[in-house]
């Protein structure tokens, strides 16, 4: 274990990390967001879902540093007297959960289909790549919207509300798998003709085994980069869907839901209800994107 750690700290990747102040700041911001979201039930100052503790008299309190603010509510309260900071922490939880799950789903699906298409070739390859082409013509948010709409139409409302979270994950994941499939297919086609794969084939290793334990580890580098950049995109897609009112159910508000709710109070001057979730969303997405950019450069041997 210590050996692995030492190898990690000696590596080029770690070295380039310590040389880039922006990356370090991004990593810290991302870490704060993730920790705040994961440990929300333990560290959030209030529980926004505990109806017993909500008091309408506390509604619309501005942030603590303004004249009418209260110290108990650092970022103010919303229309129902919920603490905005706590709502953001719980909301970031949902946003991260959906973003990570959707990215994991898109990665698994894309890598599997990309491996199959690249290794087996032929008609399967042609079919899968055609599907990719068609799907890439459409912006992913449109695909996600359509899937969500169709599921909404096909299922009764109560059933839909129960599985809404999974529908959103599925919709976002499906809309983003072609990127992974394309990349993996390309590198698989290169790897397929290399000697180690031929050697494995000659000694009679079965195709599924070659794909999984020989080809897969060698095509995963770029996948990691796309997955990181995709995470930011997935979080944004979820926020956009929830902002449009078709994303996660209202009982589990994500950052996008909070922004939508706060948007209604913009005109009466209660800007903090929508702006703080917005700033959190931007901080989260920007830090993940900058990390992804750095990872892409760090893993690219041409730039060393």
């Amino acid at each position: 274990m210590t050996d692995t750690l030492r190898r990690f700290f000696d590596s080029d990747v770690w070295w380039s990390f310590t040389r880039s102040p922006i990356t370090i700041i991004s990593a810290i911001v991302a870490l704060i967001c993730i920790l705040g979201a994961v440990f929300a039930p333990w560290i959030a100052p209030h529980n926004p879902f505990d109806l017993a503790s909500l008091n309408l008299l506390d509604a619309f309190k501005p942030p603590a540093w303004t004249e009418e603010g209260e110290r108990a509510y650092l970022l103010g309260t919303d229309d129902q007297g919920r603490d905005v900071l706590s709502a953001i922490m719980y909301g970031a939880r949902v946003s991260l959960l959906v973003g990570l799950s959707a990215t994991l789903f898109a990665t698994t699906l894309g890598v599997t289909l990309g491996l199959l298409a690249g290794y087996l070739g032929g008609k399967l390859d042609a079919l899968l790549m055609r599907i990719c082409d068609v799907q890439l013509t459409f912006p992913s948010i449109l695909v996600a919207l359509l899937i969500d709409g169709v599921v909404r139409a096909a299922l009764p409302r109560e059933v839909h509300d129960q599985i809404a979270l999974f529908v959103v994950i599925f919709a976002i994941g499906i809309s983003e798998w072609p990127k992974f499939a394309r990349t993996v297919r390309g590198s698989t086609m290169v790897e397929r003709n290399k000697e180690y794969v031929q050697a494995a084939r000659v000694i009679g290793v079965s195709p599924p085994r070659i794909m999984l334990s020989h080809v897969l580890p060698n095509v995963l580098g770029p996948v990691l980069v796309i997955a990181t950049l995709n995470l930011g995109l997935a979080i944004l897609s979820e926020a956009t869907l929830s902002f449009l009112g078709v994303g996660v159910p209202a009982t589990q508000p994500s950052l996008g839901t909070l922004i939508r709710i706060g948007n209604d109070f913009l005109f009466s001057g209660e800007w903090w209800i929508t702006i703080f979730p917005g700033v959190t969303l931007i901080a989260m997405v920007l830090s993940v994107n900058l990390l992804g950019d750095w990872l892409r450069d760090a893993l690219n041997p041409k730039l060393r």
């Binding site: 969303l281 931007i282 997405v285």
Partner: peptide, 11 residues
């Protein structure tokens, strides 16, 4: 590039 469209609108 990093601001989502709906936030630009709200701002």
């Amino acid at each position: 590039v990093s601001l989502p469209v709906f936030l630009i609108g709200i701002l």
